[in-house]
Nucleic acid binder design. Structure first.
Length: 517
RNA sequence: GCAGCUGUAGCUCAGCUUGGUUAGAGCGCCUGACUGUGGAUCAGGAGGUCGUUGGUUCGAGUCCAACCAGCUGUACCA
């Protein structure tokens, strides 16, 4: 006999279902972050999850791989009002960050916005790439951006707000750090070693990628990547930038003491600007962007310093690179310093949970006039995973509703009335809607729902005008001391009777006793 | 993309080295002891194309190959 082909229920990889605990945790985090951003004066704005592909940046889908990195599809709804060539064919994409859509929004509504335009938004973004631990194809970001302000004060604010947000989320000072760098400084270094100019663009990318790996792989690996290349433990070979020894030496020296002596303690932003400016200035020589980058860094250092944000919160880290695409000035990254182990005992490094920077070119792509902008983004999903793992989130199970049990099938209306009375008093409550044949099952159900108590009214209680209230929280405690079923049934722990008219009041008292009101 | 590891019950896994009646365990689930009371205990029960296809063999969960899927690392990452 042919077996019916059952459809296999399965979640697409890189996506996650989320239960009540995770949803509650996200809601709590979002609310915390929102309050900090509001405090800094940002206002909310929301854009859709789908944009025209060309508005999102460099990822124009090509014929072979229209979905490389980004989920894309062609619009087939038709727009007959427009010319035929524009109809049916336009590429749409799910957004892969919140910055590009904001740039589109600002450009489209430029006249109506008060500049500098300061806004925040959060939502799901999508990346069509291989997922990994803590890396999903759908995840949540929470962004804040200031558009139309060239001042370094706007960048300094982003850094301070990042620090404030971490602390508001319960991460103690010292367990996170905001790391600042400047793309112009990186450009300056590369100019200094003679790989400026259009013809070296590819090489510069390789160099930036190598620098970006300093944290994860260490200075030795970075040296290899700047030179001929590196073979990792799996035997895979990564091609290097093929710089000569002197060029490599210059970059390593730029990366600073921490990599040269193997220390991981970053320099304080203040110290970096004061102590090393001479060194850097020499290094960059005539490189204008390098000098400008240093001066911008110093400006940010002065601003955050004046507001009392010391090196325990914001530091300079010459290895911070961020995205390769659109950043033009200061870049920042928030790193969790908390060390912990996963369930298999392996050490886990959370790394970056947020970042951002100045993207002076992104809005002006649409405009034909320069529009400076800077922004900061928190990886909510990633940060939530980290906070959950270190036990700062989602530890407690959500309390369920009060369950009113069905003793006599004929009297469901009576029970429903009790439920309504509880709800009237703003107490979460529900009628047992399953098969009431087996009374034990009703209690099992209430137990699994994590209900604080159940309400019971059988014939005996009904005759006396009473109801039984069974405290499941107290009962669970009592159960530990009881060995046999007989004893359990005789003592009936944590259960009491009350007048039917007192039901709401007694339940309210019970909830208050457990701190659930 | 590259490399390594892993696919056996709803879940976690044993069995594979050395091929041989009917493929096991724990947990979970269902039923009963207990027709008015959950989490304890005991007894019983259901649940498997052993990832797929092909090959070797008298005989394959076990050996071989290809493919598929998953995990881990690495590359890319706006």
């Amino acid at each position: 006999m042919a077996k019916p082909q059952k459809l296999k229920a399965r979640l697409p990889r890189g996506f996650a279902d989320r239960g009540p605990a995770e949803i509650a945790a996200t809601r709590e985090m979002v609310e915390t972050i929102r309050k900090v951003y509001e405090l800094y004066g940002f206002e909310p704005v929301e854009t859709p999850m789908i944009e025209y592909t060309d508005a999102l940046g460099k990822f124009l889908p090509d014929q072979d791989r229209p979905n490389e990195g980004v989920f894309s599809f062609q619009d087939d709804t038709g727009t007959s009002a427009i010319a035929d060539v524009q109809k049916d064919e336009q590429w749409l994409s799910l957004r892969y960050d919140l910055t590009a859509p904001l740039a589109r929004y600002v450009a489209e509504n430029f006249q109506h916005l008060a500049l500098p335009y300061r806004s925040y938004r959060y939502g799901w973004v999508f990346r069509n790439e291989k997922p990994g631990p803590g890396r999903f194809r759908q995840f949540m970001q929470f962004d804040a951006d200031t558009v139309g302000a060239a001042s370094m004060a706007a960048d300094a604010e982003m850094c301070m707000m990042a620090a404030d947000t971490m602390e508001a989320l319960g991460i103690p000072r010292g367990q996170y750090v905001v790391k600042v760098n400047n793309r112009k400084v990186l450009d300056g270094v590369m100019e200094a070693i003679g790989i400026g100019g259009e013809e070296n663009a590819g090489k510069r990318l390789t160099v930036l990628r190598a620098i970006d790996k300093l944290d994860r792989l260490g200075p030795q690996a970075v040296k290899q990547l700047l030179g001929e290349g590196r073979k990792d433990e799996s035997g895979d070979f990564t091609k290097g930038a093929n710089l000569d020894a002197k060029q490599i030496e210059t970059i390593i020296s730029y990366l600073g003491v921490k990599s040269a002596i193997g220390s991981t303690k970053p320099l304080a932003l203040q110290a970096a600007s004061k102590v090393r400016i001479a060194e850097w200035a020499e290094l960059f020589g005539k490189s204008e962007s390098g000098q400008q980058g240093v001066s911008e860094l110093r400006e940010i250092a002065d601003l955050v310093g004046a507001s009392g944000y010391g090196e325990d919160r914001i530091v300079c880290d010459s290895s911070v690179v961020r995205g390769l695409e659109y950043y033009t000035g200061p870049v920042y990254e928030v790193e969790l310093l908390i060390e912990t182990k996963d369930e298999k005992g392996r050490p886990v490094r959370f790394g970056s949970v947020g970042g951002g920077g100045r993207y002076d070119g992104l809005v002006s792509r649409f405009m034909g006039q320069p529009v400076p902008a800077t922004g900061f983004s928190i990886g909510v999903s990633r940060l939530q995973a980290a906070l959950t793992l270190i036990g700062k989130l989602g530890a407690k199970k959500e309390t369920g509703p009060v369950v009113v049990t069905v003793f006599d099938k004929d009297r469901i209306a009576d029970y429903q009335k009790m439920v309504a009375a509880l709800r009237e008093a703003n107490i979460r409550a529900e009628l047992y809607l399953g098969n009431p044949k087996n009374f034990g099952n009703q209690l099992k159900y209430a137990d699994r729902r994590n209900a604080p108590c159940v309400v019971i009214q059988g014939g005996d209680e009904k005759a006396k005008g009473e109801v039984q209230i069974k405290d499941l929280i107290e009962g669970a405690k009592a159960a530990a001391a009881i060995a046999s079923n007989e004893e359990w049934r005789e003592t009936r722990p944590a259960q009491f009777a009350c007048k039917e008219s007192e039901l709401v009041e007694k339940v309210r008292e019970l909830l208050a006793r457990h701190g659930l009101d």
